[in-house]
């Protein structure tokens, strides 16, 4: 069960890790935004394979050019 991301977590991370200033009001806006983005990845990442890697995307572009063996 994932816990809700709180503005306090955002403010703490901003101070302790990111080294950026985030007012309390803004942290309350950022928290749900980050939670939604992270959730979208978490819900999809189960489809990744051990051998997937970030540098494969140009190859995916190239192979998808030749769908059905020819371009129109």
């Amino acid at each position: 069960m994932r816990e809700k991301l709180t503005p306090n977590t955002i403010r703490g991370y901003a101070r302790e890790v990111a080294n950026v200033s985030v007012p309390e009001e803004r942290a309350a806006e950022i928290a749900p935004e980050v939670e939604a983005l992270n959730s979208a990845v978490l819900d999809t990442a189960a489809r990744l394979d051990l051998n997937d890697e970030p540098g494969q995307f140009p190859l995916a572009l190239a192979r998808n050019r030749y769908l059905r063996g020819k371009t129109r």
Binding site: L37, R47, L48, Q56, F57, A60
Partner: peptide, 13 residues
């Protein structure tokens, strides 16, 4: 999460 989003591009494409 960032790297997963990058890796997912190939599969989702």
């Amino acid at each position: 999460r960032y790297l997963e989003a990058v890796m997912l591009r190939s599969r989702l494409l």
